[in-house]
Write a protein that binds this DNA or RNA. Structure first.
Lengths: 222, 222
DNA sequence: GTTAAAATTTAGGTATACCTAAATTATAGA
DNA sequence: TCTATAATTTAGGTATACCTAAATTTTAAC
């Protein structure tokens, strides 16, 4: 019996994808926090996802979850929807990059494949969303990302901002005001090993950024 | 306790609006058929809608339902979403008028007021959707419609097609092939009182149409 | 290697929105 | 007016996806 993939399921799979990008499994607690749902509820849901046919996640008690092939397929579908929608809200309806997340979050679950194809075509098949994040391809492969977190750079290194992994409106506005947007050229002036602060020059501005920010900005060195 | 308006509730209210446009109350069975839900389920749901705070429908056992002021407000909001979305899918993504219904049906429940405002503005605040149906205004008033069903015209009368009240893909394609789309000029050539067929000339084409079609096409006489 | 704390799961419940079968109420024809 | 049929409601259940409190397992510190 092939089951219907609910909106909840899509949300779980999307967040499990995020949490397992590093190759590790996603813990119940981390998932619960991301989804803003209690840990017991998450346990129950992942048990269901693991025993669905076909199974969408691999799960062993106390060991966290990873996606099965089928689970990953669904996750990438949702992520593709989300990122295409973000791009399209910005390009055609004048949303700013800090406003799109919430809207895309709701729309991603209800658009048809036809709709997906139409907006992708209308935008000329973009490869990145407004935050610079890679859009899974139509055949649901995630392109390889070569960028490294700004937090890994040190004084003297420079590069171009590829992506900003953040959804929070306030943070995104702040980053924009600092010029920290995709394609911005940056140069690291100093590193403080005590608090991991980086002094970064963007255009004419120089800012001192904490790890909470530098770990979310991804760079290609040059 | 002001409750959250669920997608189900929105669907009920929208269909109750449709069924009560004539001033009569909507019967449980008619609603059940429209919503494709069993009659007992509908009874249960309308009891809930009637006892919610504020009440969204007026309901008395065996007497059908009507919308309260608040219920009508919600219904018009959903209908505005639906019709704006249809217009916008046609205008900006190249959907044809027979493809938009299903997509709009899912999107109407999840778009924000911001999204609604943006697409309305992008289209120059249209007053009708691709089927010619009136779009409720931003302050949720339904404009008055002066059109009459084609089925009420008789030989010799002529007019312009204002709207087509149909969602079915097949029927819409058929009507388009006959030229029966909004703004088309038509002329009634003959009426058969036995089967209520109308012989109608549209452009160079002349078609004989049954009541099932003529009752869904709305005309302004000229 | 214990043990306290943290993480996770189990147990037991809730709300929403659907279902079928059975009972009731309304309605319309004889 | 009675009664058969149609419409509607009641009764009793299901699935999904959430919750809190309590129990269990893991982990990390000593």
């Amino acid at each position: 019996m092939i089951k219907k993939i609910t909106i909840s399921t899509q949300d779980y799979l999307k967040h499990i994808y995020d949490l397992t990008e590093d190759g590790k499994s996603a813990s119940t607690n981390a998932l619960a926090q991301k989804l803003n749902i209690s840990a017991p509820s998450v346990t129950g849901m992942i048990q269901k996802l693991a025993s669905s046919k076909p199974p969408l996640v691999e799960y062993q008690k106390h060991q966290g979850v990873t996606l099965t092939k089928e689970g990953r397929r669904v996750a990438l579908e949702v992520i593709r929807h989300h990122r295409l929608l973000e791009a399209w809200l910005v390009q055609t309806l004048g949303y700013s990059w800090d406003e799109v997340h919430e809207e895309a979050e709701r729309l991603e679950h209800v658009i048809s494949e036809d709709f997906e194809r139409r907006i992708a075509a209308a935008m000329g098949h973009p490869t990145r969303d407004p935050h610079g994040e890679l859009i899974p391809t139509e055949d649901l492969k995630m392109p390889v990302d070569e960028s490294t977190p700004l937090s890994s750079l040190r004084a003297g290194q420079s590069g171009v901002v590829i992506s900003v992994k953040a959804a929070d409106t306030e943070l995104l506005r702040h980053l924009e005001s600092l010029g920290l947007v995709p394609d911005a050229q940056i140069e690291v002036k100093a590193y403080s090993p005590f608090d991991h602060n980086l002094t970064v020059k963007v255009g004419k501005k120089t800012s001192v950024l904490g790890l909470n920010i530098t770990s979310k900005i991804f760079i290609e060195e040059n």
